[in-house]
Design a protein around this nucleic acid. Structure first.
Lengths: 122, 122
DNA sequence: AGAACTACGTGCGCCACGCACATAGGTTTC
DNA sequence: GAAACCTATGTGCGTGGCGCACGTAGTTCT
């Protein structure tokens, strides 16, 4: 019985919300509410994550094996017992990278179509 | 009565399908079926536009004032009477540009998080 | 002759999303 | 000191977008 290694391509394209979550988890583990805060901050408030949307998407990503709940290592000083931390799985990182590449190609297409300027125009 | 000039930001973020359509219309007017073909070709078949999804999204974009039906100028040689051509409105072009910038920031964030390499790494 | 392609569209069911609400402890404001 | 707000996670509900199938119809390929 060949252990089917899941391919990143099968998960593409990601829903916008899901990619935002993976992107916020890329530097390290976060809890749900922090994901909401950081995502809104990163987009200058352009993208607003509703709680219903986030927690359901988060559970979906866990089911899909892209994200995993982690043991609470934040017992330092200010730990809120209610917090639940999540981290990328290796697969989740691969999928996020593949999606980022896909978006990069889309941006290149937008530059080729002269919708937006190329980064370094001589 | 102040004629309210519609702001591009109100239309963001676009649905992925809608941005694909605007991107394909950027070089010039296209008919529906051609949008399907070109979009699939641009993404190497990664993104598949279903007919139901496309035509409904197209009508939505017309309603939103981002896309407008054009007079048929393709009466040259091979004109299919069934074809309906669409083009970007000035607003549609602004919205597409704004969305492309948003995606570019997302890609930059993915690079900063070391999910994907930066274009020119020294 | 039948299949496949071009071209536009509708019907239907699922499910993701936005909004509201539930819960609950801590802090800030009036 | 009561009301409002923040942190934190989650459910309930309604709308609507999307995928898939199907409809229609002319042309082209095998």
């Amino acid at each position: 019985m060949t252990q089917r290694r899941p391919s990143p391509a099968e998960h593409l394209p990601l829903r916008p919300v899901e990619f935002e979550i993976l992107l916020t988890l890329a530097p390290g583990e976060r809890h749900g509410y922090a994901i909401i805060q950081e995502t809104e901050a990163r987009s200058d408030g352009a993208v607003t994550l509703e709680t219903g949307t986030l927690y359901r998407a988060l559970h979906r990503l866990v089911q899909a094996g892209l994200v995993t709940p982690t043991e609470r290592r934040h017992t330092d000083d200010s730990d809120d017992e209610r917090r639940r931390y999540y981290a990328l799985t290796p697969l989740g990182r691969q999928v996020a990278a593949a999606e980022a590449m896909r978006l990069a190609r889309l941006v290149s297409a937008a530059q080729a179509a002269r919708l937006i300027p190329r980064p370094s125009a001589p």
